[in-house]
């Protein structure tokens, strides 16, 4: 009994202590003129899926849940968002050149197809982000078509210049 109490008090103190470890959540920016959704290659249905299942980590429009303001979960959230944005940030889509865009779309198609995204730990906490089989197929098909669109767009740019 006494030992149990001591452990509980110890854990509580540790919990309080770690709240003072500085963690910086990546900042949220809602005005993103270079976002993929305004780029003309995303229809409404796909935009909706991207927003609910991808944007928390892969855009500047992160929706931070309550536990992201509390250690130790805040550490994990901060790390995942930082890494997610670094890997692919939909908010800065138009800053990529054509080849980079094609690479991203190709990657999207494969990580959605092999179900490695959205990450399990994310869908565990956000069940609504889980993709149904139909949604996966939709995203894969969209990514494949969007690759052609991106190439066409680029060719038009060339023609305008020349």
């Amino acid at each position: 009994m006494k030992l149990g109490n001591l452990i509980l008090i110890g854990l509580f103190l540790v919990f309080i202590g770690i709240q003072f470890v500085p963690t910086e959540l990546p900042s949220v920016e809602s005005n993103n003129p270079e976002d993929i959704i305004q780029s003309g290659i995303v229809n409404e249905e796909v935009a909706g899926i991207l927003k609910t299942s991808c944007y928390s980590c892969h855009s500047n429009e992160t929706n931070y849940p309550w536990y992201s303001y509390m250690a130790p979960s805040s550490w994990l959230v901060a790390k995942d968002v930082r890494e997610g944005r670094k890997e692919l940030n939909f908010s800065t889509w138009q800053e990529n050149d054509m080849i980079k865009k094609l690479g991203y779309l190709d990657d999207i198609s494969s990580v959605i197809d092999d179900e490695s995204m959205p990450m399990g730990i994310y869908t565990l906490m956000h069940p609504s982000a889980k993709l149904t089989e139909e949604q996966r197929e939709l995203i894969v098909a969209w990514a494949e078509d969007a690759m052609d669109l991106v190439v066409e767009e680029d060719e038009e740019d060339w023609e305008e210049e020349g």
Binding site: M98, K100, L102, G103, L105, D106, M147, D148
Partner: peptide
């Protein structure tokens, strides 16, 4: 694979 896909792959090869 199609042209766009080949271009994407080439981009990744460069990287």
């Amino acid at each position: 694979s199609k042209k766009a896909k080949q271009m994407a792959t080439k981009g990744k090869i460069v990287e």
